[in-house]
Amino acid sequence: MKKLYPYSPLIVFFILILFFARQLILKEDPSELPSVLLEERFPEIILKKLDGYKLFSVTNLMNANSPSLVNIWSSWCVPCKIEHEFLMRMSSDHNILIYGINYKDKKEDALKVLDLNDNPFYAIGVDLDGLQSINLGVYGVPETFIIDSDGNIRYRHVGPILEYDMQNIILPILGKIMREKI
């Protein structure tokens, strides 16, 4: 014990290194918030219809046949544009139901984006003033929720879904949920 005494600052130093290394190695972004609603029912939110598109209502999520994605997007959001391609691939290649929540957008701009690029969404709901999305705990677009077939939130992805996220996060979680059901 007495011999360790002079080394105590060094020991403390290494403990601190371990403590900080955890953050460095795990590469978790501490500014990303986990959803408080995980494993809970998708909240009752009321959205408006976007002309020419099916209206997304929360009842769509309950007693569904398969898990689905709810994507919060906007025409003014640049990461959403990058993400669009991957949403398209998921809806067409993998047959995943994606519901869109159009967040604080102008109707014309939203329609223009969907005309210009393809539409990955099965149904869309409009949240004009962004107050409905607050019930979901949304704090930035894009955000994507994975909902299981009972309407419970299983995962929240903050930021755009890119190739890596799609292959390593979203699709595996969807697969896992589907296997649970069998």
Binding site: L33, P34, V36, I134, G137
Partner: peptide, 8 residues
Amino acid sequence: LVERYGEF
């Protein structure tokens, strides 16, 4: 708000 965004 905590119910929606967490204690953060």
